[in-house]
Amino acid sequence: MTFERFQLLAEAWGGAIARWPAETQDAAYAFMAAAPERADAVLAEARATDALLDAAVSPAPSAALRDHVIARAPAARPERARLWRWMTGAGVGAALTAATAAGVMAGVNLSLARAPVGEDDALLTALYDTGLADDFGGSS
């Protein structure tokens, strides 16, 4: 490696040869061994520039930004999955079940005046046991 090439690489990549392109490092270390004073002078100048660059503002993400980013990740949005499920077969099935349930409920309402209270409770419990509550805003 020539002095000019060594100088150019230090100008571009800084004062740490370990951060230079991998394919240049062996030749650079060989140059250092052959001409240590010239190499040191070039590297010292480059290290000074590195130090200046390292003094620049280095912002860290706030907790609010991190939380906002995570909240918009797919896994953090279960309501999308619920909507998708609703719009696909499961949702259609649930809709048909709901329509059936509505019909049953209408029948229940019509017969409330005559049916004993214990029978009504049993019927409503059976409806909820089908899982309809989940499809209308439950916690699943």
Partner: peptide
């Protein structure tokens, strides 16, 4: 790229 780096650092 090396040229841009050198000029920027200078």
């Amino acid at each position: 790229l090396e040229s841009l780096l050198s000029r920027g650092r200078r």
